[in-house]
Design a binder for these strands. Structure first.
Lengths: 243, 243
DNA sequence: TTCATAATGTACGAAATGGTACGTATAGTC
DNA sequence: GACTATACGTACCATTTCGTACATTATGAA
């Protein structure tokens, strides 16, 4: 039972250069954010059951005690990490500034952005995958995420309506279903890159191939949405007359 | 140290109706298959780290000992379950009998089948999701899976080539990339149904909506693959002249 | 200054969990 | 029937892992 009792004089030797005494600084916001940052990475990498609270604590500036102080238990911590993941990828409306573009260009750009945005946030993708493995049980508990994403398709809706009005787009599509199609292609590109690459011995993540796939996705969506007339122009490679 | 030693006369009371004595029957194949069946379900439901060997053992007719006897450790068991999942969904070439159909019809049918096939095998989808969470580390160890899927796109390749020859399809597509597009749409439909349904308050799994989505996917792929001429026929709703 | 409350650190515990030691039974071969 | 390799069961162990008891310090208000 040799318990070393080095309470005093035991300094982490990291944050205090001037004061060598143990002058603890209370900084709840920082501690919370620190935990969240580490937890999000751990959960997204290893899943809810794979992540270890002790490991999260170690990678933190603080202790395991604080995790349970700010978040009741592992599941709550996971839920908060999930929420933060969703929040982190949510881009502000109008950030793309698409409303001034002709519908055809606007849609092409939105699809291109969505595709790239998914690539830029692999840990978000992983969190969503993990959450789906859990049948969306935790997401269902979060009214926060629901409200957050409620307006996620407003931008697409505006573009689509403009396109229908201008005659560039067919008028029989549902923006939600269109969003589903775009999401599917963008999501799969990140989520399944490992298995797909392995099985077909094809380096899907290689920049060249990513460019090819992005081109396919954009073109595929455009061809699906364009009206008959716009499609003919598209097939003939003619520029948009409005441009 | 009270150890109850009820070795004899301790019968599970399940499998033997006639013989009341403990007449154990050696049946390696059955034991192995039993373990595999349970393990596959457990892993696909809870992931590699979430699944519990003890729980798998409990749901088995046999004991934990046997799991380690036939499979060295948890990871090997997972790998075998992964392999079995891939094997289970692999359908035989020609099973669909598409080669006698005109290319346009054949492709539409292949897409429809792929979409439905994914729906019919949710645990396979889950295993693939889980494996991607693990960066495809285990799949990489299995030459079995790779050889299994090598010919997975041969059917699509044949159809595509026929379509190019007949003039129904454009000639600038790569069958592998085409397969990627079809897979993405079919996979996402199962993998992300929980989060997507929740976020947009839309019951994606409802039969009506599944029909709608399947229609979108088929039509989207067709529009992407059709040649200019075939596209015009398609847009005008005219039947395939070859039919 | 006093005092209450929020914030933090250390050590520990109970249960879960992957894996194994050890012994027994089965079945095919000679 | 004797023998041996394979198949199988029970109890157990070492470690991991989530979570907490308990003590202490910081901070702001009265």
């Amino acid at each position: 039972m040799t318990i070393l009792n080095n309470k005093t004089q035991q300094s982490s030797g990291r944050q205090g250069v001037t004061s060598r005494k143990r002058t603890r600084k209370n900084d709840p916001e920082r501690v919370r954010a620190d935990i969240m940052r580490v937890a999000t990475r751990e959960f997204s990498e290893k899943g809810l059951s794979g992540a270890r609270i002790d490991e999260i604590a170690e990678k933190t500036q603080t202790s395991k005690r604080m995790i349970y102080y700010y978040f009741q238990d592992k599941e709550t911590l996971y839920l908060r990490a999930l929420e933060q993941s969703y929040q982190a990828v949510r881009h502000k409306e109008g950030e793309l500034d698409l409303d001034h573009l002709p519908p055809v260009d606007a849609l092409a750009r939105l699809v291109a952005f969505t595709f790239g945005h998914h690539i830029s946030h692999p840990d978000f993708i992983r969190m969503v995958m993990i959450e789906n493995i859990h049948h969306g049980r935790y997401l269902g508990q979060s009214e926060f995420i629901q409200s957050l994403n409620a307006g996620a398709i407003e931008e697409l809706e505006r573009i689509y309506r403009r396109g229908v009005t201008s005659g560039d787009f067919r008028d029989d599509l549902d923006p939600l279903e269109l969003h589903w199609l775009i999401s599917a292609l963008s999501f799969f590109n990140v989520s399944n890159q490992y298995t797909f690459s392995h099985i077909f011995n094809w380096d899907q993540a290689a920049p060249d191939n990513q460019k090819i796939l992005q081109g396919h996705v954009i073109d595929m969506v455009m061809r699906y949405v364009l009206s008959r007339e716009a499609m003919l122009r598209h097939l003939d490679g003619q520029p948009d007359p409005q441009a």
